[in-house]
Amino acid sequence: MPALEPLSGEEECLWRSLQRVLVALPRMLDEDLLRRTGLSLTEYTVLMHLSEAPDHQLRMTDLAAATALSASRITRVVTVLQSRDLVDKRRHCTDARGSVAVITEAGRQRLRDAYPAHLAGARRHVMDRFDPATVGRIASQLQSVADRLHPTSN
């Protein structure tokens, strides 16, 4: 194996800062959203993916993949959302072994109501920290990293 080139000082700073953001940001957004809306970040994300899906529904396996949750975790989250009448869970119409989650009208309304709090958190914790002139370039570079890590997430 060839020797790896060490990270430069700037690269090391970027790498360590990115690691800190990956740990701290989801916690902070979750706390903000839960306090302001009663929805966790995970619940908000599930509702968002369902609201954007064709017919506002996804197979449970696809929903788990979209939200980066395990099958058991997505089942628990959907069960909680179902108990609040924000999501329905049904048998798949052509595959009786599979289930689909469907966002309800109440779920769509709850998502619309929570959006301002989510947006405020994104702005306060991230976007307001960037120079507007660099946002496009940073977005492109991070999209390139994301595409290599998970090519089907476009």
Rank of each mutant, 00 (worst) to 15 (best):
K89Y: 00
V77C: 08
T79E: 15
R91Y: 01
T94L: 11
V87A: 05
A71H: 11
L69K: 05
H92M: 02
V87K: 01
S72L: 06
R91N: 03
D85H: 09
A96Y: 11
S83K: 12
A66P: 01
D95K: 12
V80P: 00
R91C: 07
A66F: 01
R76M: 07
R90W: 04
V78C: 15
K89C: 10
R91M: 10
D95H: 14
S70I: 01
A71T: 09
H92I: 05
S70W: 01
D85Y: 02
L69N: 11
T79W: 05
T79S: 15
R76V: 05
A71M: 02
H92P: 07
L86F: 11
A96T: 14
L69I: 01
T67D: 10
S70D: 10
V87T: 14
S83C: 02
R97N: 15
R73G: 00
A68I: 04
D85L: 03
A71W: 00
R90N: 01
R90I: 03
A68L: 13
A68H: 11
S72N: 04
S72Q: 08
V80Q: 14
H92Q: 05
A68M: 11
V77P: 10
R91D: 05
A68C: 10
L69T: 12
R76Q: 12
R84S: 10
D95L: 06
V80S: 14
K89T: 12
V87E: 07
A71K: 13
T94N: 05
S70V: 02
V87L: 07
T94Y: 05
R90Q: 07
A71E: 12
L69F: 04
S83W: 01
T79L: 12
R73P: 00
L69P: 03
R73H: 10
V78Q: 07
R73I: 05
R97Q: 12
A96S: 15
T67I: 08
Q82D: 06
R84Y: 06
A68K: 09
T75R: 08
T67Y: 02
D95T: 11
S72P: 00
R90Y: 05
A68Q: 13
R73T: 14
